[in-house]
Design a protein around this nucleic acid. Structure first.
Lengths: 235, 235
DNA sequence: ACCTGAACACCGTTCAAGT
DNA sequence: ACCTGAACACCGTTCAAGT
């Protein structure tokens, strides 16, 4: 037989945080929401705690420190990358698709790529899953072990750097970004041709192509290079 | 006719900062000393000011904000990269040497590579000089303009990411770094083979090779890929 | 024009105290 | 075991005041 709570004892419902009990999962999910809304620099212990209606100190019962929280967030993000079953005939397309997806996913959570570069080697379950899949794809292609191991390393590094570059302009709106681009272009146009002859001569090429085209160019370069390692062995 | 300063008016000589007047150059040089000693995260306005025997507010007369200070530091660092005069017959060696040098120099100033990745496009005089040189080398090879422009982009990105990775372990001494490596290796050995068959099967290859070998493998991959673009044109 | 101290609005992390 | 408020030692940046 329970009795209703008298109104003067009812807490005002917090619109943001309907007081669930704290848990690691809830903390990481909340931190990820904050990341998506405001970028990695805004993901502070204090702001995450605030979103949960508590103080920063409370988080330390579930997480060793801020770096660990960032790494847990990263592995959750890696979970958004789905990977194919290796098909040796399509290995080039498959590895490209995984890297493209990696860039997309990392760039969608602005700044998280920084965490990849800070961490010696991501060892969360999802990160390991991606690594496993990438290794399997390159191995199915018949590449030498060294080319498989180093290739995955390089492709992941390239994808991470590309993602980081892509989220660099986070916070600026479309118009501001356009302004920035135009300003850089204008600045380059005014460069003295005596001192920077090649830059000036190549301005059209330098300004051509969007981030995506440039990324694809490099991805193709690396994958084709790896393919040569395969043919060297079989040839 | 000047008279000696009486002892009770003499300021105690600060061992660290022999009170030179503040200037942009002095600020940036001091910040760079701090960077080398303690890494980028330690380069705060307050700590730089402290080394100069003043308060953080004083720096704002010479520098718009911390980001600008970081970018000025970066361009000074780029100044340490010397570049060759293009020799078409040796373009592959030349471009490789420049990128290697870039990694070395960036890694020597721990964390500065982060600034490259944050900045849309480095536009300091020294950064432009390096870009000019890299473009000239690839152009002397007879590559199509697009391959020159995109190639420089990708090589610089690759070098920057490699440098960042290399300075990740800054602050840890040799022994701690070795421990870390051994721990990761041990962890991977204990992975369940059913779930991560390829990782487990490839453990020797995954643990083989130091940072340098891996870097060279990727550098070679990219440069050879670019070389193919050259032969496509002439062939 | 350049420099300064104080103030404001933030940080990460620890710790003693509570349940 | 989990949560808390207060405290400590930091941040970047602004501003009124000084020279």
């Amino acid at each position: 037989m329970s009795v209703p709570v008298p109104p003067w004892q009812q807490r005002a419902a917090r619109s943001r945080a309907p007081k669930q009990p704290l848990s690691l999962e809830l903390i990481v999910r909340t931190a990820l929401d904050l990341l998506d809304a405001e970028g990695l620099d805004a993901v502070s212990m204090r702001k995450v705690a605030q979103r949960l209606g508590t103080g920063a100190a409370s988080l330390y019962a579930h997480v060793r420190n801020k770096d660990e929280l960032h790494e847990l967030m990263l592995d959750l993000v890696f979970g958004e990358i789905e990977v194919p079953r290796p098909d040796p005939r399509r290995w080039q397309d498959q590895i490209k698709a995984v890297i493209r997806r990696q860039v997309e996913v990392l760039a969608r959570h602005p700044g998280i790529a920084q965490v990849v570069l800070r961490t010696p080697a991501p060892t969360g379950p999802n990160a390991l899953g991606i690594t496993e899949a990438m290794l399997a794809i390159l191995r199915s292609a018949g590449l030498p072990d060294r080319a498989v191991a180093f290739g995955v390393d390089i492709l992941a590094l390239y994808g991470t750097a590309a993602a980081l570059e892509r989220s660099a302009g986070f916070g600026l709106d479309e118009a501001e970004l356009g302004d920035r681009m135009r300003q850089v272009g204008e600045y380059l146009t005014q460069l003295p041709a005596e001192r920077f002859p090649t830059i000036v001569a190549m301005l059209p090429a330098l300004m051509s192509g969007d981030a995506d085209e440039r990324f694809e160019f490099g991805l193709d370069l690396i994958v084709r290079g790896l393919a040569e390692h395969a043919s060297e062995r079989s040839g």
